[in-house]
Deep mutational scan, measured.
Amino acid sequence: EVRVRALYDYEGQEHDELSFKAGDELTKMEDEDEQGWCKGRLDNGQVGLYPANYVEAIQ
């Protein structure tokens, strides 16, 4: 698992997508798939998908 930080706001479009604001931190659980989606977990425990290019790894 990798900690990542959102670069942009994202509003989930489907029930299985996460929503977050730029600057939020979350945990990447799985690497992106061929469509460019990652599985992650918000700090509130919600698990879902998000676009991989909306986040950067925290060093």
Rank of each mutant, 00 (worst) to 15 (best):
residue 43 D to S: 10
residue 21 K to V: 09
residue 55 V to M: 07
residue 13 Q to H: 08
residue 32 E to C: 11
residue 14 E to F: 08
residue 33 D to K: 07
residue 48 G to K: 02
residue 22 A to S: 13
residue 47 V to G: 02
residue 42 L to I: 06
residue 7 L to D: 04
residue 22 A to C: 08
residue 52 A to H: 12
residue 1 E to K: 12
residue 21 K to D: 07
residue 59 Q to T: 11
residue 47 V to W: 04
residue 17 E to I: 08
residue 8 Y to R: 04
residue 29 M to H: 06
residue 31 D to G: 14
residue 11 E to A: 13
residue 41 R to T: 04
residue 46 Q to D: 15
residue 46 Q to G: 12
residue 44 N to G: 12
residue 7 L to F: 04
residue 22 A to T: 11
residue 16 D to W: 09
residue 51 P to S: 06
residue 57 A to T: 13
residue 32 E to T: 14
residue 50 Y to W: 01
residue 27 T to A: 13
residue 10 Y to N: 10
residue 53 N to K: 14
residue 48 G to T: 00
residue 45 G to R: 03
residue 3 R to Y: 02
residue 33 D to V: 12
residue 49 L to C: 15
residue 10 Y to S: 03
residue 21 K to S: 10
residue 15 H to Y: 14
residue 34 E to V: 10
residue 43 D to M: 11
residue 44 N to W: 02
residue 8 Y to V: 06
residue 18 L to S: 01
residue 55 V to P: 01
residue 41 R to M: 09
residue 5 R to F: 05
residue 23 G to H: 06
residue 41 R to N: 01
residue 21 K to A: 13
residue 44 N to E: 06
residue 54 Y to L: 13
residue 1 E to A: 04
residue 23 G to L: 05
residue 56 E to C: 12
residue 30 E to L: 06
residue 11 E to G: 07
residue 20 F to Y: 02
residue 55 V to N: 00
residue 44 N to L: 02
residue 4 V to W: 03
residue 8 Y to H: 10
residue 20 F to H: 00
residue 17 E to D: 05
residue 2 V to P: 07
residue 42 L to N: 15
residue 13 Q to I: 03
residue 38 C to T: 07
residue 15 H to G: 14
residue 29 M to K: 03
residue 48 G to R: 00
residue 24 D to G: 03
residue 35 Q to W: 11
residue 40 G to C: 03
residue 27 T to C: 14
residue 19 S to V: 05
residue 15 H to M: 12
residue 52 A to V: 10
residue 33 D to G: 09
residue 41 R to A: 09
residue 32 E to F: 11
residue 1 E to S: 00
residue 38 C to H: 07
residue 31 D to S: 11
residue 32 E to A: 14
residue 21 K to E: 13
residue 17 E to M: 13
residue 38 C to A: 14
residue 4 V to E: 08
residue 50 Y to P: 00
residue 18 L to R: 00
residue 41 R to K: 13
residue 19 S to F: 03
residue 58 I to Q: 05
residue 26 L to H: 00
residue 44 N to Y: 03
residue 48 G to S: 01
residue 4 V to P: 01
residue 4 V to G: 04
residue 36 G to S: 06
residue 34 E to G: 11
residue 5 R to C: 04
residue 39 K to N: 07
residue 28 K to E: 11
residue 50 Y to I: 15
residue 23 G to P: 02
residue 5 R to E: 02
residue 3 R to W: 05
residue 15 H to D: 08
residue 6 A to F: 00
residue 18 L to Y: 01
residue 15 H to Q: 11
residue 18 L to M: 04
residue 47 V to F: 07
residue 6 A to G: 02
residue 34 E to L: 11
residue 41 R to S: 11
residue 53 N to S: 13
residue 27 T to Y: 15
residue 30 E to H: 06
residue 9 D to R: 04
residue 20 F to Q: 01
residue 10 Y to A: 12
residue 32 E to H: 13
residue 48 G to C: 00
residue 7 L to H: 05
residue 16 D to V: 14
residue 13 Q to K: 07
residue 37 W to S: 06
residue 50 Y to C: 08
residue 28 K to L: 10
residue 34 E to H: 15
residue 2 V to Y: 14
residue 11 E to N: 15
residue 28 K to I: 08
residue 35 Q to E: 15
residue 6 A to E: 01
residue 29 M to Y: 07
residue 30 E to M: 10
residue 12 G to K: 09
residue 49 L to A: 03
residue 36 G to P: 06
residue 38 C to K: 02
residue 13 Q to L: 10
residue 58 I to G: 12
residue 39 K to L: 11
residue 13 Q to P: 04
residue 57 A to P: 15
residue 24 D to H: 10
residue 30 E to K: 06
residue 42 L to P: 02
residue 56 E to G: 08
residue 39 K to H: 04
residue 56 E to L: 06
residue 10 Y to R: 07
residue 38 C to N: 04
residue 35 Q to G: 13
residue 8 Y to P: 02
residue 1 E to L: 03
residue 11 E to H: 06
residue 29 M to N: 04
residue 54 Y to P: 01
residue 1 E to R: 03
residue 18 L to E: 02
residue 24 D to Q: 15
residue 50 Y to R: 01
residue 48 G to D: 00
residue 2 V to W: 06
residue 54 Y to R: 13
residue 57 A to G: 14
residue 35 Q to S: 14
residue 53 N to F: 07
residue 3 R to N: 04
residue 59 Q to C: 15
residue 56 E to R: 10
residue 33 D to I: 11
residue 13 Q to F: 03
residue 11 E to M: 04
residue 35 Q to Y: 05
residue 16 D to P: 09
residue 48 G to Q: 00
residue 23 G to M: 04
residue 8 Y to K: 07
residue 14 E to L: 13
residue 17 E to H: 05
residue 1 E to H: 03
residue 8 Y to C: 05
residue 36 G to R: 05
residue 2 V to C: 07
residue 13 Q to A: 07
residue 22 A to N: 06
residue 38 C to R: 02
residue 44 N to A: 08
residue 38 C to L: 03
residue 45 G to P: 00
residue 29 M to G: 02
residue 22 A to F: 09
residue 3 R to T: 06
residue 13 Q to N: 08
residue 4 V to C: 03
residue 36 G to N: 06
residue 2 V to E: 13
residue 28 K to P: 05
residue 22 A to Y: 06
residue 41 R to H: 07
residue 47 V to T: 09
residue 7 L to E: 03
residue 40 G to R: 00
residue 9 D to P: 07
residue 28 K to S: 08
residue 29 M to Q: 06
residue 47 V to L: 15
residue 27 T to S: 09
residue 46 Q to L: 12
residue 22 A to V: 11
residue 51 P to W: 03
residue 17 E to C: 13
residue 47 V to P: 03
residue 30 E to P: 08
residue 35 Q to N: 09
residue 43 D to E: 13
residue 52 A to Q: 06
residue 26 L to F: 10
residue 9 D to A: 06
residue 21 K to F: 02
residue 17 E to W: 12
residue 16 D to G: 10
residue 53 N to M: 06
residue 16 D to S: 12
residue 43 D to V: 10
residue 30 E to F: 04
residue 41 R to D: 00
residue 14 E to V: 07
residue 1 E to D: 02
residue 4 V to D: 05
residue 5 R to G: 01
residue 56 E to W: 08
residue 9 D to T: 12
residue 5 R to H: 07
residue 23 G to I: 00
residue 45 G to I: 00
residue 4 V to A: 03
residue 43 D to A: 10
residue 32 E to N: 06
residue 48 G to P: 00
residue 5 R to P: 00
residue 17 E to P: 04
residue 38 C to E: 14
residue 28 K to F: 04
residue 24 D to I: 04
residue 32 E to Y: 13
residue 12 G to F: 02
residue 43 D to L: 07
residue 34 E to D: 08
residue 16 D to Y: 15
residue 40 G to W: 00
residue 3 R to E: 02
residue 20 F to T: 00
residue 50 Y to E: 00
residue 56 E to Q: 09
residue 55 V to S: 02
residue 19 S to C: 10
residue 8 Y to T: 12
residue 51 P to L: 08
residue 27 T to P: 00
residue 6 A to R: 00
residue 39 K to E: 05
